[in-house]
Design a binder for these strands. Structure first.
Lengths: 147, 147
DNA sequence: TAAATTAGTTATACTTTTGTAACCATTACA
DNA sequence: TGTAATGGTTACAAAAGTATAACTAATTTA
């Protein structure tokens, strides 16, 4: 029981640097957005609209950092601030259509290295990887993506 | 064919921020080592011993950055520099026993958040995740972990 | 209504990461 | 042997991430 948790954690820790290398770094070199900005855009796409505090919880980042990232995203026209109608302290952040479109475009570009390696796999491996990544994604989202 | 590659890339891009949140950030707050340092230690553990240039290739990082990271790791007693006997330009970096031991300890600690969530899963999900992460890990290592 | 909480920003200081260019030592090669 | 290429460091600059405290505005609660 505990052993299997250890094994999973160990596997995920091995996967992490590979994704970092193939996703985060290409973002920095190819796009005019930081990994932090991409994380925020991803949270917004998943949850629709989030307050500053919720974004911080989503990414385990301190609020001042979120302020900075969102400032840059607004400057780029990717997101907008909207005052909450019920609680005027709250500022909700939402994707603009430009933000959504560019987010997808940047994801495409930043995963080029990844894809260039993936096409080297044979059909069986691709099949396996598609299923496996789907399962990992769904389960991780279910336990880690709480706002 | 191309579609399945897109799907896999999409899945991995969704997984990445979840791992970042659950692994990289806890490292910063709980351990006296940076994520960059952890990546280098991980590469060394996998490959045994690497030259500065190979570490850079391994992590897609510029060489001056590797110099900095390795300097800090040496200061902490985690790795050692060894001149190559055949080519005196090359400096090989290897883990010390302390480095190996502490690396495992930090991995344990940094994955605590992850594990605290994983134990909420039922046996069937754990089983699925163990298999799926293993498959993802092995295939990604085979295509992305070239030195 | 006064005090405590909460949401968000500002300010500040620091570390890490990134990128580039210049540099030295060694090796390969023409 | 002289030139080019390679491995690594140094130096410099700038961007990004991290952390904390202090602050304003709005809300809750006692």
């Amino acid at each position: 029981m505990n052993q299997i948790v250890e094994t999973i954690a160990e596997n995920l820790i091995s996967i992490h640097p590979l994704l970092y290398k193939s996703i985060s770094r290409p973002i920095r070199s190819k796009a005019s957005i930081t990994p932090g900005g991409m994380f925020v855009l991803g949270s917004l796409k998943r949850h629709g609209s989030l307050s500053m505090t919720d974004i911080g919880k989503c990414l385990s980042m301190p609020k001042p950092h979120i302020t900075l990232i969102v400032d840059r995203l607004i400057e780029a026209g990717f997101v907008v601030r909207q005052n909450d109608t019920k609680d005027r302290r709250i500022i909700n952040i939402s994707l603009t259509s430009k933000g959504l479109k560019d987010f997808e475009k940047i994801k495409q570009k930043s995963s080029e290295i990844l894809k260039s390696k993936l096409i080297l796999l044979d059909d069986q491996e691709l099949e396996t990887l598609a299923t496996a990544t789907q399962q990992v994604k769904e389960i991780l989202i279910s336990i880690l993506s709480k706002v």
